[in-house]
Structure formats: C-alpha cells, structure tokens
Design a protein around this nucleic acid. Structure first.
Lengths: 352, 352
DNA sequence: ACTTTTTCCGTGTACGGTCACGGGTTTTTC
DNA sequence: GAAAAACCCGTGACCGTACACGGAAAAAGT
C-alpha cells in the first residue's frame, strides 16, 4: 500500500501555530519578516503535523517563469544530435506544464567562433538553467565559469569537462564503451587487422568526446589481442568520395579476417562502402542508433551497434534542472552514466 | 525554440465562445448537458486558441481520489518480481502527487487458488484501474472480463493473454527474446549440445510466459544449428539439490563445447553449479538482471544476460493508467514492447 | 513624550480549474 | 394549454498556495 492522504494544509499549520497562513508561508520560503519566536513555533508545528506543501497549488499560485537553454551542435534530421534534440523537445513538453520553457540553440561543432557567439547570446540574456554539450574545451570552461558566477546551474550532456561546479552530467561512459566495443569486435575471433575509420578535423582546441572511447578500445586490444593489427584510416569529412579510396587502400592485400570500426555515429558510411564493394565476412561495429545505422544492421552490413539513449539523456538533463528550479530538489546523482546498449539484428527493431 | 507561453485559460475560451466557463468545462469532460450548438462552438474555439487545460489547477480543483491495484506474483527481495514491485513503488510516488494511490497485491504463482482469492478481493472493492501480470490463463481471463464489465481499465504486464479489451500491454517480445538468446548462445561457435534447464511445475492451466521464449530459441536452433543437440534438463523447484544431480548427468560424457540456458530468471543457480564444479568453457546465457545474475556475470560464470527493464515496464503501466484516469489521455500505443538489453561483463555495471 | 523608523504579521486577491446548485427554456405529457 | 419533465447553462464557492498591501506594535531618534 502506497500513498497516504496528505490532508494537512498551510491553514492547519497556521491555526495550530496561532499565526496566519501568511506567516507560515514566510517561514516556508525563508522570506524573512518573521520573529524568531513565531518562526520557531511554526517550524515545530510543521514538524509535528508532517506538513508537506501541496505541490500543485504551489505551482498554480506562483506564476514563476523559468527558461532553460540547451546548447548543442547543429543537427539535421536523423543524425546524432537530432536524437538529443528530440529528447529535449520531449521534456520541453512536460516542462511547459511547470511553466518552464526550454530553448535549443545550436552551434557549428567545427567552428569555435560560432560557439563563442552562441555563448555570448546566452550570457546576454541569462536563463535559469543551461544544458550544454561541450565540444570546445577552453571556450566551454570559460562559458560555464561565467554561468557559475551568475549562479546559473548548468548540466553537461554527452561529455563533461574537468571543472567541478556543474550541476549534473548525463552521458555514456566513453572509455568503457570503447572497451566494450573491442570485446564485441574481437572476442572469440582472430582478426588479422582492424580498420579504425576516423574523420579528420581541424585541431583548434577541439575536444573530441570519442578519444576516450578510442583509448578504451586500444587498451582492450593491447591486453587481449596483441597480434591484431590496428590501422587508422583518416577520412576527409568534406569529400565523401575520399572514403572509397582510403578504404580500398586499406583493404588491399588483406587476406584474413578484417574488422572495421568507427567511434563516432557514422558507421553507416562504412556500411555503404561495404555494400558497394560487396565485401563478405568483414566485421563491422559502430556506435549510436541512428536510423541509417539501424538500416545497416538490418541489411547485415553492420553487425553490432553500441547505443545509448541520447534522447533520454537530454530529457533527464532538462528534468534535473526543472526539478531543481521548481521543487528545489537537489540532484540524485551528480554523474549519471547511461547504460550501453548492444544492438544486433535481432533486437534492434525493439529499440525505440 | 520550444515551449510557448500557454496562457490560454478556460475563461478565454468561454469568452470567445460566448458561453460560461461552466459550459466549457462540461464539454471538456464530456459531462453532457450542453447543446450541440454550443458544444460545437466551444470545440472550435479550443481548437483555434490551442487551449490546453492547466494540469495543476485541474488536479487542485478536482479532489478526486483514484486507486490503482497491481496484481503480481509474490516476491522476495532480489528476485524477478521484486523488480516489478520496485517499478510500481517508484511510479506510486509520483502518482500520489496526482491523488492516485497505488496498491500492490500478490499471489502465489504456483497456486491458482490464491490467485482466485486475490481477484475476488479486488473485485469486491473495485479500484479505478488494475495492472495484472497473468500467470493463470483461464482465471485471468475470467477476472479481466469482470473488470471490463465494470468499466475498470486493466493493463497487462510481463505477458498478455489473447483477449482484446485490455487497456495496454507492457512487456518483452518473448518469442524474439528466445531467438536473440539462441543467436547469442550459438552464433559463431559450434556447440555440441545445449542444456535447456527447466523448472518443473504443476500443470494446472498454468500459463508459462517463457514458452514463447523457448519456441523462439528452438526455431533459431533448428534453422541455424541443426547439428547442435538440445537437451532438456528438468529441475524440481522444491529440492535445490536436484539440480546438481541432473546437471551432473547431463554433463557426463560430453566432450565438445557445451552451452547452458534457462528461460526464466534463475540462471544464477546454474552459475552456482558451474562454480562448484569448476567447469571451464561452458557457455551460459540467461535472462533478467537480478542482482544474483549480475554477480554471476561479473564472476564469469554467466556470459550474457538478456534483460529488460521490468521496473520501467511496471512504472509505465501504472503511468499509462494514471494519465488516462487523471487527464483522460488515451494510450499512445496499446502494445508496448520493451527493448531487449544484452548484458555482458563490460556493460552490466552500467545497467541500473 | 512625540515622531519616525523598523519589524512583524494578518488580510485579501489571484492562480485556473471543478462541480453543485438553481434558474430559465424548451419539450412532453395529459 | 397548464403542469411536469427534460434540457441548458450561468453563478459562485471552493482547492491550497503565493504575495502585495497596509496596519499594529515595538524600537529608535529627537
């Protein structure tokens, strides 16, 4: 049996304490203008009666408006960040009931300047809370420092930086996901070599969340499969043709079993290549449940995806802020690592 | 940008439609006593203005009390049904804010009579909604028929029966989970035989949710590994010693690779056996993320678990009812299949 | 002792709904 | 055609809390 009848109201408390509800309200919200004596009295009565403020009446009466801003990379339908955006959208719906508006602002993840610009815009019109997916280390640290100075709580999603005053973090354990990936790739089969397909980026203080993943992968391989050759294949993000040439090179002259992996969400471009070249027996493992990646699983060109619910992550991030802003609830846990989901062709259709 | 200022109130609607808020309220709740003409008008205005009732005002004003009852098998801490109970407990917390109390009643899943008894108790004092985990086919059908007749919505969790008037269903796709299980067990390795450990039960119109799982498993094996021998090992649930003898028999004289699988949540008893006998190289696959099973993964005696978030399932079931009772929201989807999570030693620690 | 200031507190309205009540209209009934 | 019934609909009192406002009491100033 759960859920008791919570019939004690602020009026009961007031009556018992021999004061008016106004006074009770003042002590409840620490709004001052109450004598120590009556304050004491009220507190005692609250304790005795086990008074819990009615949540709904409270929200209804206080017409406070909160605004939360989510700063994430630009996205187009179907890519990784669109999942996050969807999650935000979802929780925005619920939050709007609490009088909280949620706003998404995006930046070009390949252009620091655009990130700086966005940060300034946010700082110029301070919201009540911020959710940020950090891509540029220095700039983000600078940004959150200012937020912190203004008392605006911020939540990291996807990856976090080394500062310590963030309100919460929601994301995948990146190192472990790489480790897991390696196990899935290599365990029980003796691979001759593994191609690690990487997208070249401008340097520019860029903080790639996937490096930890790669590190985890490499550590597993070093420990368990020292004989497997690891080959980095760098692709130019601007010329999609590039991948064909580079992979042709990498595949040339390979005789034994080969694996291909990417540590970002774009394994589907590898799947596409494999499909074109009609290669058989190549083991392909990637990350994130984009629609294109799921299709690649279904068609058999990708064997396993390691996925996370980025949408839930984003929603959780927003909700944590809302809970804090509205109910004054502290975070349950500061660091929240989402589960790593292993998807193959037999369970991917049940992954929404 | 998300979440607009939803400042349209029932009074705005009333004014626009040229009626009183009472009338608007009546059409909102389909409470009758409204002429078709004004009803039409109000509906149109609601549409135009995009009016959404304020949830909190609504809850505050209507002091309705709802009661939801969850009928599930008895459980002890750490077993499968305790997960479900935990999920119920969680959602009960949120629901209590909505003036909904959630009650868990349990029955002995090996005793029809106890189930009948529980059903009668529920029927004697009808709640607003029911969540039920069906174990006895005929009795459950009988039970829900009466609920249906009284207009009490009911939700199936874990497994569902073949009737059609349930409000919603939340559970794992059992057949596919068996198929998936077989793939994980056998793909890429040539197993000589697989032991299917089963717990004998009294017959008694008992509806075992795991039979579909076994069917899925067998179909996969027949299609992909016709040479692997499948051996059923029946265990007496009452004598835990039994398993040792039976498994000893089954293992005796096996030379090649062996797999062991159970289709309920108790693979940990096999793990325990393997640990005792110090067997090496036996592939063990099971279901459900019980603490004991997770421990078995960590110690290496179970290789993979296929899990579902039964807690979320239960919570979702309760929430669906609450949403419907409080806000009159219809279910999004009637049949909700939860994802199948593949757990191994590298990702099981992030599965909460 | 009489202002002036500060401190403390009660009152009343608003928030956006719900629902009982009762009065006015129309339709039925005899 | 009047009485009864059925049908519609507006009114207003809540629900439990937040907060502005103004006044009483106490402290400080002169």
């Amino acid at each position: 049996m759960v859920g008791k009848d919570n019939r004690v109201t602020i009026n009961d408390v007031a009556k018992m304490a021999g004061v008016s509800k106004g006074t009770v309200d003042r002590v409840l919200h620490d709004r001052g203008e109450v004598s120590p004596k009556s304050r004491e009295k009220v507190l005692k009565v609250i304790e005795e009666l086990g008074y819990k403020p009615n949540f709904y009446a409270s929200i209804l009466a206080s017409q406070k408006k909160h605004r939360i801003v989510c700063v994430i990379p630009e996205y187009v339908s179907g890519d990784f960040w669109s999942l996050t955006a969807r999650g935000v959208e979802e929780s925005a719906e619920t939050s709007s009931r609490f009088g909280v508006t949620v706003e998404v602002v995006t930046y070009d993840q390949y252009d620091v300047e655009s990130f700086r610009h966005v940060c300034n815009r946010v700082l110029a019109d301070l919201p009540s809370g911020v959710v940020v997916a950090p891509m540029f280390r220095v700039e983000t640290l600078n940004f959150v420092k200012k937020l912190d100075a203004s008392g605006v709580p911020y939540v990291y999603i996807d990856s976090k930086l080394e500062d310590d005053s963030y309100f919460a973090y929601f994301g995948m354990p990146m190192f472990q996901s790489g480790y897991l990936c390696a196990d899935i790739m290599a365990d029980g089969r003796s691979l001759e070599k593994i191609l690690v397909v990487r997208i070249e980026r401008d340097k520019m203080g860029y903080s790639d969340p996937t490096v930890a993943r790669r590190t985890g992968f490499m550590e597993y391989m070093a420990a368990h499969c020292p004989d497997t050759q690891i080959v980095n294949v760098f692709i130019d993000p601007k010329s999609p043709e590039d991948i064909r040439r580079k992979l042709d090179e990498a595949f040339a002259g390979a005789s034994g079993n080969i694996g291909v992996v990417m540590f970002n969400s774009r394994i589907h471009i590898v799947a596409e290549y494999i499909r074109e070249r009609r290669f058989q027996g190549v083991r392909v493992v990637g990350f994130d449940a984009l629609e294109k990646n799921l299709d690649a699983i279904r068609s058999g060109h990708v064997h396993v995806l390691i996925a996370q619910h980025s949408d839930r992550q984003a929603a959780a991030a927003v909700n944590a802020l809302v809970d804090n802003l509205i109910h004054g609830e502290p975070v349950h846990k500061k660091d929240n690592y989402t589960q790593m989901d292993i998807l193959n062709r037999f369970n991917c259709d049940y992954y929404m």
